[in-house]
Amino acid sequence: MTLDKTVNNRAWFMVLPVLVLVAFNAVIPLMTVVNYSVQESFAGNVFFFEGSKWFEQVLHSERFHAALLRQLAFTATILAIEIPLGVGIALTMPRKGPWVSVCLVLMALPLLIPWNVVGAIWNIFALPSFGLLGRAINGLGISYNFTRDAGDAWFTLVLMDVWHWTSLVVLLAYAGLMAIPNAYYQAAKIDGASRWAVFRYIQLPKMRRVLTIAVLLRLMDSFMIYTEPFVLTGGGPGNSTTLLSIDLVKIALGQFDLGPAAAMSLIYFLMVLAMSWVFYTVMTREEART
């Protein structure tokens, strides 16, 4: 049966409110950032044209390189932990019965907590003086103080992100697992497949699509992370947990260097834009395949 669609270009007017909204909250600020990125700014809206100077400065800045390196290290670390852990937890979750809802609600809880609250909870939880985690680790005889030691700060930051976001991977992986028809498992049983073979040749390939989404979502999200590390460590001790977004805010609002901050935010934006394009492309390809 063919579906006769009515093509009516007046339908574009329905999209107009969204376009106006996007223009005000995205396009105009973006244009302003581009304008700032090529100028030196002074108080009272006084600007001097500088050309590509700020971009050159940011690209050659050791501070930017260090923040980018920290950002990449953070993203790689949390992906290496959250994806296998999420899949592992999803595999152990019950498929039917009353415990399904309990597990799903428990898994969804961390995702419902506002980011600044997550930062505040972990800040208090990890304090060496009276936080449960801080006291417990120190009680084991391991010296731990995330406000003074860079390694401890990283450990806490990664742990916090794993606590907050592994659930997302779990829920996606669980949805992928639930979509596998029972016939696959029955066939595997008849063939006498091991638990590993079932995972490797049935579950993992069937979860490919949702895991791709999980990896890309976590990749983009972790690349833009700001609130949680800002509340937990404020980028410290020293600059040890100053990720790209925190460094950007320090330059823009702390030092009020609008030109370099605008140039840096455009470079940052281009990175996220490239990731978004990869995400969109992979999603389109996966959809075309199914």
Partner: peptide, 15 residues
């Protein structure tokens, strides 16, 4: 619109 700090170069770019 002075806060937007337009320059001929960026205006040309967006145009």
């Amino acid at each position: 619109l002075s806060w937007m700090a337009w320059t001929p170069a960026t205006a040309a770019f967006f145009i």
